[in-house]
Amino acid sequence: MEYISLQNIGLVTGFLLILTGLYGALTNKNILRIIVSFTIFDAGLNLVIVALSYMKGRVAPIIDKTTGIHHLSDKFVDPVPQALVLTSIVIGVGVTGVMLTYALKMFKTRQSLDIKDFKETKW
């Protein structure tokens, strides 16, 4: 029963979201559904990285009166993965915006949202 810790719950949920997002991106034909699957994949990936930074019994890395300023490395969770995930979420929204603009342009040329109709780069 000591396997059910908060970090393990986060890791398992994140891995299942990654697999679901990849399956959706590989199987769907509607291009908007592919982009939704990529959003799910991003959410799962960020959850895995933040779950790896958690340690049991420690608090968030903000210094205030209750934590003091001595022996901080015994009281805080890991702040480095949180900084990386901050960057990753913002980049995710930028890439989603560019993907959606491309989808809009593709729809304007061919009037279809099915990726089987766009065969120019297939050989």
Partner: peptide, 24 residues
């Protein structure tokens, strides 16, 4: 927030749940 990451929670709520859905 349960995983002790308040900065990340604020960013995900504002950007992931607000702006991505509205762009879609």
């Amino acid at each position: 927030l349960l995983l002790a990451a308040p900065d990340v929670a604020m960013t995900e709520a504002a950007i992931g749940s607000g702006l991505t859905t509205i762009i879609f």
